[in-house]
């Protein structure tokens, strides 16, 4: 339900800035709290029951925070008792700092057309 509210009132979501965070600390927290085990070390996502990719279209902060604290579907909940607000803000800052991946067109190994 909350997800639909977010979709209905995008201004509420996108208008709200994320709290300040440190990408460096966020990287460490991303690893320490095992976010990477499902989503990959650069948020690229995993497969076979692992988590979806977080990038390049990172959730807005409110949606990101909500999904982390009280997740929809199969993601484990990271509640404040075990992942502080500042850690979460740092993780968000880290994800925003990840450099974009190259485009498919620039990766020859992903050109499967016309191959046996």
């Amino acid at each position: 339900m909350r997800f639909f509210i977010l979709l209905l009132f995008p201004a509420v979501v996108f208008g709200q800035d994320a709290p300040a965070g440190s990408p460096e600390r966020g990287h460490q927290a991303f690893l320490k709290y095992q976010c990477y085990s499902c989503h990959g070390t650069v948020g690229q996502g995993g497969e076979r029951g692992a988590g979806p990719r977080l990038l390049p279209n990172l959730f807005p902060w409110v949606a990101f925070s909500m999904q982390t604290r009280t997740p929809r579907q199969d993601m484990p909940a990271y509640r404040k008792d075990h992942l502080g607000d500042q850690d979460l803000a740092d993780i968000y800052a880290y994800l925003r700092s990840v450099k974009p991946s190259p485009a498919v067109a620039n990766i020859p190994q992903l050109n499967f057309e016309g191959r046996r």
């Binding site: 990959g40 996502g45 995993g46 498919v104 499967f112």
Partner: peptide, 15 residues
């Protein structure tokens, strides 16, 4: 293919 490109140069290597 777009999903496979994500994190292409990451270390450790993506699956």
């Amino acid at each position: 293919r777009a999903a496979a490109a994500n994190g292409w140069n990451a270390v450790p290597v993506t699956t």
